[in-house]
Design a protein around this nucleic acid. Sequence first.
DNA 1: TTGTAGGCGTTATCAC
DNA 2: GTGATAACGCCTACAA
Lengths: 338, 338
Amino acid sequence: MLRNPTMKDVAHEAGVSLKTVSRHVNGETNIDPGLAERISAAIAKLGYRRNLSAASIRPGRTGKTIGLVISDLANPYYSTLARAIESVADAAGYLVTIASSEEDGRRHDRLVDRLLEQRVDGLIVVPPRRATRDWSEVAAPIPPLVVLDRPVPYGGADAVLADNAGGARAATLALVAGGARRIAFVGDSPDIYTMRERHAGYAAALAEAGPAAGAPLTITTAHTREQAEREVGGVLRDGRADALFTANNRATIGALLAFRTAGRRVPLVGFDDFETALLGDPPVSVVSQDVELMGRTAAGLVLGRLNGDTSAFATRVLPTRLILRGSERPPAGRGSAG
Amino acid sequence: MLRNPTMKDVAHEAGVSLKTVSRHVNGETNIDPGLAERISAAIAKLGYRRNLSAASIRPGRTGKTIGLVISDLANPYYSTLARAIESVADAAGYLVTIASSEEDGRRHDRLVDRLLEQRVDGLIVVPPRRATRDWSEVAAPIPPLVVLDRPVPYGGADAVLADNAGGARAATLALVAGGARRIAFVGDSPDIYTMRERHAGYAAALAEAGPAAGAPLTITTAHTREQAEREVGGVLRDGRADALFTANNRATIGALLAFRTAGRRVPLVGFDDFETALLGDPPVSVVSQDVELMGRTAAGLVLGRLNGDTSAFATRVLPTRLILRGSERPPAGRGSAG
DNA sequence: TTGTAGGCGTTATCAC
DNA sequence: GTGATAACGCCTACAA
């Protein structure tokens, strides 16, 4: 088994002291060209690679790594977020260690602890729906922390949120404008903060629109695409609703599948854009979040703190955008296929 | 600025030696219950967290981290891969540091070097199309290395590949069976290994099928969804082809958009499944790779090597699956909408 | 069962 | 400009 060559080996090979090698490796200038040459040769000969992990234990030095804990890296929303964060981090010379909590509180906590023990320079986190960690009880020092998709549970972190309520409100109002009178909310559990917010926006829009818009009809059991499909199938059969606000991607796609099975559709606006929304017939209207911007904002906040920004912790709420493509209106004739 | 408490601080607080704290923290058994109690109290009081980064510089110890370099984390293919790898790694106590090369050779090399300097325990890598790194010239020791989506360029690594040629062949034969006589290959640059393989499978199928299947018609300029849409639009207008094998996800979706614009479709089979393939009219037939299995296999190989597996390096080729959903057949009447 | 001495690979201090 | 020497936080001998 080969050992990694060290500065000591290089120093010995080049016939200089360890410190001189260190200087050379760290690009310091005060160094004799002749020695530099010998050191370079020794490095090449031995295949020396510096050990950043060892260097990072010195006070003032770090591993230049940011930790990211999300729910599920395979979810396009989170992977887009992760990509944006990684991109900003990389440009600043930081690596990103990414872990998925699967919305499990204990797992989330375990991963956060592990990252803290690994001494990451910063932490970006999407707390699970039933968060167990009380950040205010975590011993200092804690690296710069940014919370995504949730309001900050304590005073020592920044947060980045989308305007979930506002987006949901806009979507619902678009359906009202299309003439809908019984709009159903199809979403996941209200344990999830974003779901609560989106439902609040939906309810607010109905209240605003007055009696003509009808009473709320709330479905919160669309945890998976299949469940959403089943729920919407039921709604289509019994005619409980004449329009749908689908509160996340899975709900939207489940609804579209139910439309296809039933051979007819009702007006629909979904939360979160998706790649094939344009392929729908009609194309699918959505509330779009700028996920990349969220990621870049979060990464920027962490890097800012690392660069000495000591301004007050704050929550940034990013606007959403309503993209109307046609599905918010009723079918032209009598129920054409969705 | 607060300093992280160290074992020394804990030892001092508890009135024991540093080594005893180390034993306690590492869960060793030979320890007096009374002292253990005092140490636990001191840890809680000071908010001590062990420094894995420091511990990892000892010989025989590591940071328990695997490095992953892919092209683009925002691409569902890679994020699924990353998720599977992370999942297996986590179960074994490893973190995963993920970086995107954006198919840029220099960037890829820079990231790999950084991860090596960070002393990751293993490395999983998707080399960019124009790889610059010659692994056989990288100085030993190199941690266990697994190459994804590409044949291994040197003898010191394992590889995991999908059966790209076989999948493409099956897709093309399905189109032939549907009666197509001029099947176009719509894909990205042949600089990309998987594209070359898929094209080879396509060409092989045509050769097999004999003169009735017509001559190859190869389009390799579908780098983006938009370009694919444009190319396929042209094909539909001039009638050069009566069926399409779209060699990746972007090409498939671009083709479907072109179908929608033209108001008609031709038989199509795409490489790579996608979430909304079922929503097509007809649903879209695809060659599906088991991306999760690829990820789990790659992670398993690395962990196996870390656990002392010294068997010969090998390349694993995972089968693909042809999923026929209807789009491989011609439209029923005269060109209904796609 | 506990403590002391030494070293892991690197960087910082401070003489020369 | 260069090089001993002492940290950094932790762990492995080995001794008590």
